[in-house]
Design a protein around this nucleic acid. Structure first.
Lengths: 222, 222
DNA sequence: CTGGATGCTGAGGGCGAGCTGAAGGCGAGT
DNA sequence: ACTCGCCTTCAGCTCGCCCTCAGCATCCAG
């Protein structure tokens, strides 16, 4: 179920943030500061996907990309400089499965990683919780066979909760995963939770539960 | 529903780009760097179509083409050198179903692959959404039994939306699938969406829906 | 029972995504 | 060379979404 993701990023802060965001979304993650052990990692860790910075000391991202392609079937998501159009082109024509321009919102990176894994058939496209079906790929949410219209933010929020279903997630976690914010504004989360609830509960009972002092859980109630 | 496509291309970058473009169009894809396992692949993967590079290490494309013809009923699309007229002739007389000259726009390759599969009867030629019928092969669009005149670009756009019906597709996806662009110009897509809508809605309600912040969906409304 | 902390939700303003009419450029066909 | 139609770019406008705020509800400690 849980896919393995290898992160190669020399900026420790970014690498750590990316790693923990991916872990929170249920991936098994390993983080390297450069590509020196790449072959060994591919062999031992056997990642399903590699998140690869373009700018790296020593061998750069494109060189590593070729190594990955030659040595494994892993997907590749590249981190390129902002507006780095030449990078983007090189990345795609170089065969990356997707790219994300720095700076990026963590939620976007997680979404793209998930999307690539889905395309590669490593991850199911839909999550089901009770009578709720969330298809992150198609951007469709159904409850009791009725389509539910969500806005972009509401969908990202629900997709995150669905990925963590059964687990209590704090507002801080939600904020960083969905918005990429570092500062703590609980009300922002509350407002959107409220909106999602209103739409979901038009077709049934409560699915997004509050755990006072801790956060929220997505869970089919009994 | 989803046809299987085998890609044989030794340039990893190109092979990977082609594979992911085909996957995004709903095909099941497998990629090989050479034709050594060809017989095994034909037997196990049972592709409906093979995308075959002419220039390959070891056995070249034409040798492989004969193997494919002998061992399976799969269609073949060959990738030839640019303006390689001799190659083209050899490819066609050798029995390829179509050929694409390098360098090519991904959208064109996908279109030709789809066309060959349709000709072979492996893929339904028409897609129906509500009272709309899109015949990609014939280039005909009908709504409520009335023919609708679309320009070439509008048709490609609608065919793409029809292939992805029910699924939300982003403007970026549309741009790469229909235009082959990688830079982001949302307005270009919006303008053509607008034109398609104007023509479709002369004969009925809205079919191309906007999902703000995400993209568009083709869906019959209720 | 009371007060403070935590959570919920209705309302409104700012802003940016999306829509469309218009015009220029370019290529195909005459 | 000229015409015509399509594609693209541009600019102005509209409207929906997101965020902030404020008031109220609920929960728990003391």
């Amino acid at each position: 179920m849980s896919a393995r993701v290898l992160v190669i990023e020399d900026a420790e802060a970014i690498g750590a943030a990316v790693s923990s965001a991916l872990r929170e979304s249920g991936f098994e993650v390993q983080h390297r500061l450069d590509g020196r052990q790449l072959e060994a990692d591919l062999g031992r860790f056997r990642p399903d996907l590699v998140v690869l910075d373009v700018m790296l000391p020593g061998r750069d991202g494109f060189a590593l990309l070729e190594v990955i392609r030659r040595a494994s079937g892993a997907g590749v998501v590249m981190l390129t400089a902002r507006d780095g159009v030449p990078d983007r082109l090189r990345g795609l024509s170089g065969g990356a499965d997707d790219y994300v321009g720095k700076p990026f919102v963590l939620a976007e990176l997680v979404a793209r990683v998930s999307a690539v894994l889905r395309r590669l058939g490593r991850t199911p496209s839909t999550v089901q919780v009770g009578d709720l079906v969330v298809d992150a790929d198609a951007g469709v949410v159904m409850r009791a066979d009725q389509a539910i219209e969500l806005t972009a933010t509401e969908l990202r929020l629900l997709v995150y909760l669905a990925a963590q279903r059964g687990r209590v997630v704090s507002k801080t976690q939600i904020l960083t995963a969905v918005w990429g914010y570092e500062d703590y504004d609980p009300n922002l989360v509350e407002v959107h939770i409220s909106a999602v609830r209103r739409k979901l509960e038009e077709h049934g009972g409560r699915l997004v539960h509050t755990v006072r002092g801790l956060g929220y859980v997505l869970r089919a109630e009994e």
